[in-house]
Amino acid sequence: MTSSAARLVVLVSGSGSNLQALLDATADPAYGAEVVAVGADRDGIAGLERAVAAGVPTFVTRVGDHPTRADWDAALTAQVAAYRPDLVVSAGFLKLVGARFLDAFGDRYVNTHNSLLPAFPGMNGPRDALAYGVKLAGATLFFVDAGVDTGPIVAQVAVPVEPDDDEASLTERIKQAERAQLVEYVGRLVRHGWSISHRKVTIG
């Protein structure tokens, strides 16, 4: 990687399939970014193994190791800050960060969600979409704020709901679209820059 490559810190809680997509993308210098660290909230997950296999430094900051959630948030903030990221990416990170983290990284911390926000926030986007009977589901990439899936939207991709879809089949198709969108727009953000004004995200 060249010294001009943007620095990404990626946070994971599970298998790390989105992380792997970013690692694959950053292998091409033209992408414009490198993953400089991968953080997790638990040990023994495949996401950390993927990072180690790629030669990327890792760290684990467990909530249970800290007296309060605020202490955990401060520790996570310090760990991430040590790698001087240009952009922090939640790639299946299942913990809500707090005020300290958002003060440090709120305008450069992106997350992806498996619905077309503001519809169906929370943990069960595809299930809720099916239950409501929508014809279009999808995924949203957004900058994280203090709410739950409420931050300024970077990009969205629609995924049609098929008549025979169940939660598993719809979730899998959304994951594929979500992963491609994450890679595309993280690349656009780091190559062209961005601004946020009145909830509107402008790239370039």
Rank of each mutant, 00 (worst) to 15 (best):
V190C: 02
D128Y: 05
M123Y: 12
A82G: 13
G151C: 12
D65L: 00
G98R: 11
Y132K: 05
R84T: 12
T77N: 01
L19K: 03
S17D: 06
R188A: 10
L130M: 07
K135S: 11
P160Y: 09
S17N: 09
A129H: 05
A155F: 02
L189I: 12
L117D: 08
I45V: 14
H66C: 00
G204M: 05
A155Q: 07
H198D: 15
H66T: 04
Q181K: 14
D128S: 08
T77G: 07
W194S: 03
V52H: 09
R188S: 10
A54P: 03
V60D: 04
Q181A: 10
T61K: 08
E167S: 06
S4R: 15
K175D: 07
V10C: 03
D145L: 02
S3M: 15
D149Y: 01
P126A: 03
A168T: 15
R173Q: 11
D24C: 06
V159P: 03
F120G: 01
A158D: 10
N114R: 12
D145H: 03
V144N: 05
M123K: 13
A139H: 04
S115A: 13
T150N: 13
V52F: 11
R199L: 14
I45P: 07
R173V: 08
W194I: 08
P152E: 02
S197Y: 14
D166R: 04
E34R: 14
A51G: 06
L170D: 00
W194K: 04
G151A: 12
A168I: 14
V10S: 02
V80P: 02
P67E: 13
R7G: 07
A74P: 07
A70V: 15
P152D: 01
H66A: 05
A131S: 13
Q79Y: 06
G204S: 15
Q156V: 01
W72E: 03
W72Y: 09
V88H: 06
T202R: 15
G16E: 00
A46E: 14
Y132C: 06
P163K: 14
D86N: 12
E49Q: 13
A180C: 09
S90N: 12
T77L: 08
G122K: 10
D128T: 12
A5K: 15
N114V: 08
V36H: 11
Y109N: 09
H192C: 05
D41R: 05
D86K: 02
V38G: 02
